[in-house]
Design a protein around this nucleic acid. Sequence first.
DNA 1: TATCTGTACTATAGAACATAGTACGGTTAG
DNA 2: CTAACCGTACTATGTTCTATAGTACAGATA
Lengths: 132, 132
Amino acid sequence: MICINFQDSRPIYEQIVDGYKHLILAGVLEQDERMPSVRNLAVELSTNPNTVQKAFMELEREGFIYSVRGRGNFVNSSGQLLEKKREELVDDISKLLIEAEELSLDSEQLLRDALQKSKVGCCDSDVGGKMQ
Amino acid sequence: MICINFQDSRPIYEQIVDGYKHLILAGVLEQDERMPSVRNLAVELSTNPNTVQKAFMELEREGFIYSVRGRGNFVNSSGQLLEKKREELVDDISKLLIEAEELSLDSEQLLRDALQKSKVGCCDSDVGGKMQ
DNA sequence: TATCTGTACTATAGAACATAGTACGGTTAG
DNA sequence: CTAACCGTACTATGTTCTATAGTACAGATA
């Protein structure tokens, strides 16, 4: 379902958190669906149960899952989560725009460039794009 | 010139790097202007010379300053740096937009919201803004 | 009852971060 | 030349975060 990059500088538990956030927000996991058990997921990802537990605690703290002692961890409803995620994205972009303003850069032109790059970056067309 | 938040989870050397990046890009420090010495800045920021040195090494690695043994560290020309920074901003925003696309969110509406929020966030007007 | 589940500990090891101290070589003002 | 500054390169120490390992306990369920 998700995969871990052990070469990544980001901690394993954080990769697990982000992986499941994405799965839940994207609707791959449905409401009240059961998460893998701490021990099973640890085996599957070749990591330690404690690391998985730490990730699940963080997911619960942020409202993505809820846990029932003795039964397992379950997915929360994604509706509110998606709205929350949208607000985070707006917030992140506006922070970057404020940074741009401080450097006297044209925010609107910046957004046009970013929008085009995001559309080019998704596919592999090279319409006006530069090779990286 | 810059200030350090010791409560911040970010490492001190990273805060120094970011602080000087901002000063250089904003043109507060001019080309070939001399940076504070490693030892003096350490005293000024109530930190250790080694921590400042680590920050300066990073700034040099990223092309913001150059060092002359026995004389000091000096600011590089900001023109190319500003263009590089602009590309980074475009890249950061486009990554967020790709994330939004994956969640079937309306990118253009997202950008309009972010643009408005960035303009509201700069000043303290409350035109359509929510109290945090 | 046996086996699964989450949860809570302790202990250990490694990496990153920060501090402290020392040392060496280049630059510059006196 | 000398003294005082500069960058640079080490070693050593302590703290925190991350990850692993092992143990233990309580709830749920077949």
